[in-house]
């Protein structure tokens, strides 16, 4: 298993964002993580990486604790999470992906520079290598992020909405890249929004709405019934409980 999550609960201000999530993702799958807004998709990625405090539950990656396999995991945050006015070139950003393995102090070797070079080549931004990042289009920014993750040479990739607001060419380039990763036996978990392209892009599906609604191979999981339960499903009691918690606390002094 690339990722196993057991009974993970994450709450912000006692409002549950993830509730008792159980998830097993086999190695080598290209996984789409789909759910409505506020379903906790991004939070799930961050919880896997230990970036948000969990109330309970456990995560193992390749059967180990995240701290022990950190170098085998690459994370692609949302594009909007960084300041693109930062003084750096595309090459600088992509090279950041090699920091984890290159160490923090010694000069970068030719090996790391080559890795960055190859990663840029793979996503087709080699000609932009020396361009300042504040001159990039949205799609180019996303490709730079993808190249940075590739440069990490990880076995597991966690991507937060790489397809958000990118041009068609970039979308194509990302999909090709994901396919190549799968051929190399890598596991990729991608937060995705567009239900239309889900069956085309991925071969494994996680439907998430605060809890995992369905997990499995695309053909079995991408069904009307499951989607109905994810998007229109009844979560009334859960909602009522969190509402009641909120009300009770508001009533107290």
């Amino acid at each position: 298993m690339a990722i196993s999550i057991r009974a993970m609960t994450v709450a912000y201000q006692r409002k549950p964002v993830l509730w008792e999530v159980n998830l097993d993702i086999p190695t080598g799958k290209l996984v789409g993580l789909v759910g409505p807004n506020g379903a906790g998709k991004s939070t799930l990625l961050k919880a896997i990486l230990g970036m948000v405090p969990t109330i309970g539950g456990s995560v193992s990656i390749f059967g180990l604790d995240y701290q022990d396999v950190r170098s085998r995991v690459a994370y692609v945050p949302q594009r909007s999470s960084v300041d693109w006015d930062f003084p750096a070139t595309v090459r600088d950003v992509v090279t950041m992906g090699t920091y984890g393995s290159a160490g923090w102090f010694w000069p970068l070797t030719k090996r790391e520079r080559n890795r960055a070079h190859e990663a840029m080549e793979q996503v087709g931004i080699l000609d932009l290598a020396n361009r300042p990042i504040n001159q990039l289009s949205g799609g180019q920014q996303q490709r730079a992020f993808l190249a940075r993750a590739l440069a990490q040479q990880a076995d597991l990739f966690l991507m937060d909405e790489p397809f958000a607001a990118v041009d068609a060419a970039t979308e194509r380039a990302i999909v090709d890249c994901l396919r190549r990763l799968q051929e190399l036996g890598k596991t990729t978990l991608v937060v995705h929004h567009d239900l239309h392209t889900v069956p085309e892009y991925f071969d494994y599906l996680v439907l998430l709405n605060v809890r995992t609604v369905a997990v499995g191979p695309m053909a079995e999981t991408f069904t009307d019934e499951n989607l109905q339960r994810t998007y229109g499903g009844r979560l009334t009691i859960l909602d009522e409980v969190s509402e009641a918690i909120r009300r009770r606390e508001a009533a107290r002094p």
């Binding site: 609960t9 549950p16 008792e20 159980n22 609604v213 009844r234 009691i237 859960l238 409980v241 009641a244």
Partner: peptide, 28 residues
């Protein structure tokens, strides 16, 4: 409720129930 409607596996249920039952009122 979690087992039947919210579709969780039984071993995960206990903690889920733990978490929310303190807010249940009579009507719920």
């Amino acid at each position: 409720y979690f087992a039947q409607i919210a579709n969780l596996s039984p071993e995960a249920i206990d903690r889920g129930a733990d978490y929310s039952e303190h807010a249940l009122n009579d009507q719920m």
